[in-house]
Design a protein around this nucleic acid. Structure first.
Lengths: 334, 334
DNA sequence: GAATGCATTTAGCGGCCAAGAAATGCAATA
DNA sequence: TATTGCATTTCTTGGCCGCTAAATGCATTC
């Protein structure tokens, strides 16, 4: 899948003159690998980066495979790649272990990893759509030509978009994009759905936020208040917010609530785009998140629901100040 | 798609002896047609059945094509089929018009129409899953073999199920079915989601139930109270309920609310299956629906929201009496 | 002159095959 | 004995071809 001129044609310049003499291990590092291998490598490097695996620790293939829900094979591939990058050291016959300078390599490795082909195509389409660059109706053929996708890939994407509610099959053939994404009030409407379900989820019978989850959420928010608000990327900030709310709602044990929230969050990500990186507000949000955790910890569900409602309403009201940006289809300068 | 030995081979018996002298127009009527043609025929017959088109009315191909969002071609095919069935009469050179006994034929035509291939496969899979006949994890290959589906069809179905939250891609390959459908409390949980969003949708700013929609809903409920509760099929009763609630929520103008409801209703259809055809309760439900419409008509949104909440809660409480049936995976005897 | 009916064009889908990726089984080994 | 490393098997995906359905354009006809 997603091959892209890897080797095969013209590996060298004319007469064997290498155009890119640097990166001596590139043919191993750059080797096209499957999705699972890539993700396994990312997962392992994350474990090394956050200290779960310390220098000298031996990596057991089966253990990692079980952790990621895959077989041992792609784990082995991933370890080999990471060994080439210097994160791990290979002990022939006894597998791999974390190199002494593993964590440093892990940080740089993780920094340079980009999006999936499919994911990036998804965002390109969404951006084009938001920018009005895509017509309302279009054939699959035209989409494939435009974004250079295989049949299967495109079909996966379109089905996903259809599931998210902003694309649909036309009766004959071709697809139609609905107006959901381009209407200026969509973002506000998405918040009103959250306002309906998130506080309600707290009042579900049997609501129980696992202690471990609570502590993890609290640690994240405190790290943010401790300075990460200023340093983290806009994407990272958005992700943290999403994860917090999904953790809260997920603790209701009602999958319908959680699925609905996840779904609306995926669309919301397209709507907020990368625009509103107004960091000053994240501080207040983090404080409210922490207060919410305190209430939940005490079992004060009703108060928690009230606070969550106020929290969302507060965020929604701030929306009206950024909405003009969306309407004008411009990105803020600062 | 879905070809099946249609015509082409052996139109007649040997030496011109017709094997099936009855149904002289069968090779036209039975001809396999595409999805759009089939749906166009169904749509036109619906128009004839409900009196929108009366005997003698001429059918304009372009008008119908615009109505259904397709081209004239499948409309022509559909009209030809319907003419063969006696719903329409063909006036060569001037198209088709509704036959004098069109409405009668339309009723019988509509009665014998079955499910789409894809739709029926979807329900077969869901039923197998509910019955525990499908393993938790399975490869696409195995699914294709089991249900005789093409690659694209299966991918469409699986993506749809994934969107509905009861199937998901495994990291490597193959799919996993989640426990959502088989857990005994799922139905109740789905109602609690509805309880969170439906009353809230009534309080959306700009809520406006179109007069035409209101009248249509009222007429349906009154027809039900007038006797259809006893005569209609269980499927039809379910559909009416779904359509009513979706009309109410759709009038909020917030597509997120409507999408969420539609989604949960699709899963709910799988959960209720065909079990609870307890008709006595539909009478009370219809009365409450009518009262709800009255309140909305008066613009009493808050009272309407309260009634809707009570209505859903009432239905949900009745659930506990039928839940044992689901748990035992049995269908009621009466 | 507008709508029909037919011919042409285009789109999408299934089958087939080959390539690549992941899963699985097995022998070697620390 | 548990784990690695490799070989084999299974599965998915992409390309290509042909078929059928739907869209579109055009001549005909009332």
């Amino acid at each position: 899948m997603r091959r892209e001129g890897a080797g095969m044609t013209a590996p060298d310049g004319p007469a064997g003159v290498r155009e890119f003499p640097v990166l001596p291990m590139s043919d191993t590092t750059r080797r096209m690998t499957g999705r699972v291998v890539t993700e396994a490598a990312a997962a392992i490097s994350a474990l090394v980066a956050d200290g779960t695996l310390k220098p000298g620790d031996r990596l057991l293939a089966q253990r990692l495979a079980d952790l990621l829900g895959v077989s041992r094979f792609p784990i082995g591939q991933a370890m080999r790649i990471l060994a080439d990058r210097g994160l791990l050291t290979a002990d022939p016959g006894r597998g791999f272990s974390v190199a002494s300078d593993g964590p440093d390599h892990a940080a740089s490795y993780r920094a340079e990893r980009g999006h999936d082909d499919l994911t990036s195509a998804y965002f390109r389409i969404a951006e084009d759509r938001l920018a009005g660059a895509l017509p309302d109706t279009i054939s699959e053929q035209a989409m494939r030509d435009r974004y250079g996708l295989g049949r299967g890939q495109l079909s996966q994407l379109l089905n996903r978009m259809a599931g998210e509610g902003w694309a649909e099959r036309r009766p004959g053939y071709g697809w139609r994009f609905s107006a959901v994404l381009t209407t200026p009030t969509a973002l506000e409407q998405s918040y009103r759905l959250r306002l309906a379900i998130e506080p309600a989820s707290l009042l579900e019978p049997g609501y129980c936020l696992a202690r471990e989850t609570l502590l993890r959420c609290r640690a994240v928010e405190e790290r943010m208040l401790g300075g990460e608000i200023e340093t983290a990327s806009a994407d990272a900030l958005y992700d943290r917010g999403v994860r917090f709310h999904e953790a809260i709602v997920g603790a209701s044990g009602n999958p319908f609530f959680l699925d609905t929230l996840k779904r609306v969050n995926r669309i919301r990500r397209l709507l907020v785009y990368r625009s509103l990186a107004d960091r000053s507000r994240y501080r207040r949000q983090a404080a409210e998140h922490l207060e919410l955790l305190r209430l939940i910890e005490r079992g004060a569900q009703i108060e928690a629901a009230g606070l969550l409602r106020a929290h969302l309403q507060g965020v929604m009201e701030k929306l009206s100040t950024v909405r003009p940006l969306l309407e004008a289809k411009q990105h803020p300068s600062g």
